[in-house]
């Protein structure tokens, strides 16, 4: 399948007695915004590191932008990555680092400087261009690390925990920056513990557990957005039977603790989530219920907790 930006095929990696990847098979479509989700030790960082050629797999193979394995000569400037916990030289200034990296990507000195200045502006570090790395805060270091991954116009951007240690404003700004990259049609792969953030950004996700992918696909499918609806009720009557009568072909469940009616349905032409929500809401309101909220599908967090 040539439309994959990154493909892992039965990749295995062991560190001593620990099996970090136990036969990971995963395909990341070109142009997707892909979220890698998993608990600590699930193999996310190992998968990233193998994709970037930092780690050698014990078995299996990867294909990256059509190349069999990461070859920096062939992929020069086509892959950007922000490795987790990789330190930049403490005495070097931010701009000098970025210019050096840009030049290693094949840019001329003038182009490298332009790119470095652009990236510093995008990650909000323009005023820190002349600062030495040792003078940056943790959040600034993360932004600089993300920034170097965006030098040039990489077709594939791999970001390992890009928002860890960032304050809410920085997270918001970074999210907006990543949305911009997504709009350009580039492939972005992000790992994060912040599932709410991934849900807002990613059109595809994969759940990793114990070194394998236990589920992968479009976010809408995995969270059931096209085949599940949740309606939260306020205090008062909970006429679940009315909903069951209105939607006889669907599964209707009542979560007493959360006061949520969950409707699972099979989407058909002319009968999508919007029609199901409409029918259920009418039934509930007619029976005197007070609707507190409506949501399509489950959250990534719910799905993650169910699966791991």
């Amino acid at each position: 399948m040539p439309d994959a930006a990154l493909r892992f095929t039965d990749v295995r990696k062991r560190f001593g007695k620990t099996e970090a990847l136990a036969g990971l098979t995963l395909e990341i479509p070109r142009g997707s915004f892909f979220g890698l989700i998993g608990p600590n030790g699930a193999g996310k960082t190992t998968a990233f590191s193998i994709a970037c050629g930092f780690l050698k797999p014990d078995a299996g193979g990867i294909e990256i932008l059509g190349e069999p394995g990461f070859d920096p000569a062939r992929l020069k400037g086509r892959v950007g990555a922000s490795p987790q916990d990789a330190a930049l030289g403490r005495e070097t200034r931010c701009l000098e680092h970025l210019v050096y990296f840009a030049r290693l990507q094949g840019m001329t000195a003038a182009e490298a400087r332009r790119q470095a200045e652009r990236v510093l502006a995008e990650v909000g570090l323009s005023d820190r261009a002349a600062s030495r790395v040792k003078a940056l805060s943790h959040g600034m270091l993360r932004r600089l690390a993300v920034g170097q991954a965006l030098l040039g116009t990489p077709e594939l951007v791999l970001l390992d925990e890009p928002t860890s240690g960032l304050d809410p404003r920085n997270v918001h700004e970074l999210r907006e920056l990543l949305r911009g990259i997504r709009a350009e049609g580039r492939t972005v792969v992000v790992s994060s513990h912040n599932l709410h953030e991934l849900e807002m950004l990613c059109d595809h996700v994969a759940f990793l557990s114990r070194g394998v992918s236990i589920a992968a696909g479009p976010t809408e499918t995995l969270t059931g957005k096209g085949e599940e609806v949740e309606i939260a009720l306020g205090q008062g009557p909970a006429p679940v039977e009315s909903v069951r009568r209105a939607l006889p072909e669907d599964q209707v469940a009542w979560d007493e603790a959360r006061r949520v009616v969950r409707i699972s349905f099979t989407p058909l032409p002319g009968r999508q989530a919007e029609e199901v929500i409409g029918a259920a809401a009418r039934a509930l309101l007619d029976a005197g219920a007070r609707i507190a909220g409506v949501r399509r599908g489950r959250t990534l967090e719910q799905k993650f907790l169910e699966m791991t």
């Binding site: 930092f54 490795p83 990789a86 330190a87 990296f101 290693l104 170097q148």
Partner: peptide, 13 residues
């Protein structure tokens, strides 16, 4: 040790 090498090896052999 600091993994700083990774930034360079993304871009060159």
């Amino acid at each position: 040790s600091s993994r700083g090498i990774r930034y360079s090896l993304l871009r060159t052999g």
